[in-house]
Design a protein around this nucleic acid. Structure first.
Lengths: 353, 353
DNA sequence: ATAATGGCTGCAAACGTTTCCGACGAATCG
DNA sequence: CGATTCGTCGGAAACGTTTGCAGCCATTAT
């Protein structure tokens, strides 16, 4: 059906091997200029396209990296996905997307990482996985396929390029403390999940420096049903928090979407932002500046994270026998002060840590 | 390096073909239960994984569909991407992501659709492409690879499953007219791009029914620099619109992100929503309900669109020789009335058209 | 008891490409 | 002028899998 290398060779009057050389090697004069041009002309005329699987089977390289993600409810995750895709493409590689909706998890217990066929991908970038998949990820690495994660991973010997959430949380909390807040609410889905625990530590550290301590009463958990959407979950958690007394004077939201939800809950309760309650988010998605009250938040260096992760991955791919231990790169986020915290609107770059 | 079928066969004491049959066929008793179990046990022990490229080369099927997208700046496009991925995965196929950042276009003039190698994908879903790529898409179809698009496509014989934007725009405009508005601003990037032109028609049709006509003076074009982000572009366009006189009493934004930008411009100008100016968006992204003023908009049936598109694609894949002409399915969007338009908050389902 | 039947299994070809190796001609050098 | 070298090309093997075909053995029917 499809036109193959044999057709091109026959039409051009050369051997298959010659045709292959004429088409693959870019500048190597392993074929004479005459035949090379002739073969290429024929290939163009016949609309020849190489067969991916034959080439990959023969060369042993698939020129593909897998992108693994579990929950892309937040805009920041999608931004990272796109950034990784761009960085991978920059290297001339393909991207295979493997996405597991949270809702679909119960259907199949098998981790999706181990589902990769042999030589399907040469490496993988993990945007975001829940803990249940760390096992399969380990199996992947054991098969000699390098993995780089954008989130902290426990018990898996993978390189990680993370955004220092602790520093981010510290910056935000410090910012609120500097503005005089002493009772700062906390809205997130868990205190123990790796990425979130980090945030909590940063929050607590800033509190401790100020002589304050964490009061469980200001913590409201997001509903676990992700099908609700992150804004809605933030809204629900905020309503729960607002029912308690005494009210905090500020609230720390685990991401910008949650902050949007919280703002709605505050507005409905007749509370003004930031006069009655300050609000800060996390991520600095584009909409943060367009929130009901422009949102003070912390910016994740998405592009840099993707670039570095992909660079690390390709380094591993190029040196498969290199047994060097997993590396961890932590990128510093940047405080973006807007109106929702009530402070003077400035941007400090937070590199002092 | 990797463990192959030959290793499994040798270890199990059977021929390669037997091992293949024992592992591939699920229930066909083409091998005896004894050997099948034995081979599977060995495969499990050796952690055998089939080689993707060898299998695809032999069978001629790659079990992969490509996902093509050009500009994913809006949340709705990402929602569609994820929905398509889920629907494809449901069918047991892989998804290959091909994304072209708008900014990267000038770099390579080659359309990305024709870049697919032979037998790399069995079909493709187009989320969103600009007109420059319609040529390459045609070439793809000519190679016998079915394509289904989620946006209207000109001059390309592909199936399309679109959301009826004209109906959506009509619903929104009618809604504003019913509320007494007669001068309705229009914020979008172009009046001629397929998807947007549709919207404009719906807008004009509703206007015409009411005896009004379109006044160019209420149309403000979004800045073309997509790197700015959609909210910012909406903000800029709205500022331009607000500088003109007489002011419209309502503004129709080409999507929800633009509406966010517009709201900010309105707030800065001291105008209240909806009292001084009503605002409507398009798409109904999650955040629409969490805008500074909850946004009246039109909901795109994302899940249904993805499911139908994938169904159509697999129908074509299953019947490659079927020469039936391209089909077009138009899904009806649904009006979602919130506070930003000033009407009574209800939800009509717009199926009367 | 012999022939026919049918279930399992092994052999080998094929998918389309890359690449090693040998061969051939021309060109260069001694 | 003969020998060596170099550039160019063709032949053929190999990558790992699926699958048509043929052969084998056990079972059943005649």
């Amino acid at each position: 059906m499809a036109v193959t290398l044999k057709d091109v060779a026959r039409e051009a009057g050369v051997a298959i091997s010659t045709a292959s050389r004429a088409l693959s090697g870019a500048a190597d004069p392993i074929t004479s200029t005459g035949t090379r041009e002739r073969v290429r002309e024929v290939a163009r005329r016949l609309k020849y396209r190489y067969n991916l699987h034959a080439r990959c089977l023969r060369t042993g390289r698939s020129e593909t990296v897998g992108i693994l993600a579990c929950d892309l409810g937040q805009r920041i995750g999608l931004a990272k996905l796109l950034a990784v895709e761009a960085a991978v493409r920059e290297k001339g590689y393909r991207t295979l997307l493997r996405y597991r909706h949270q809702a679909g998890l119960k259907g199949r217990q098998l981790g999706f990482a181990q589902e990769f066929a042999s030589s399907e991908v040469e490496g993988a970038i993990v945007i975001n996985v829940d803990a249940e998949h760390s096992g399969p990820l380990g199996a992947l690495i054991q098969r000699g396929i390098p993995v780089v994660s954008l989130e902290p991973l426990e018990g898996v010997p993978a390189d990680v390029v993370t955004v220092d959430r602790m520093a981010g949380a510290y910056l935000l909390t410090k910012h609120l403390l500097d503005l005089g807040h002493r009772r700062i609410g906390l809205l997130c889905s868990s205190l123990t999940t790796p990425g979130l625990a980090e945030r909590h530590w940063g929050y607590q550290q800033a509190l401790a420096e100020c002589g304050c301590s964490f009061d469980e009463a200001v913590f409201a958990r997001l509903p676990s049903n992700v099908a609700l959407g992150t804004c809605v979950r933030g809204y629900e958690a905020a309503r729960e928090l607002l029912a308690r007394r005494p009210l905090p004077t500020a609230v720390f939201c685990s991401n910008d979407e949650v902050a949007f939800g919280a703002m709605k809950a505050l507005a409905e309760a007749g509370l003004r932002v930031p006069e009655d309650m300050a609000v800060v988010g996390f991520d600095d998605i584009e909409m943060a500046a367009f929130a009901p009250v422009p949102l003070t938040t912390v910016r994740q260096p998405v592009g840099e994270q993707a670039t570095q992760a992909v660079a690390l991955l390709f380094e591993r791919i190029a040196n498969p026998d290199d047994e060097r231990p997993p590396r961890a790169i932590r990128l510093k986020p940047r405080l973006v002060v807007r109106a929702s915290s009530g402070g003077p609107v400035v941007v400090s770059d937070g590199r002092e840590d």
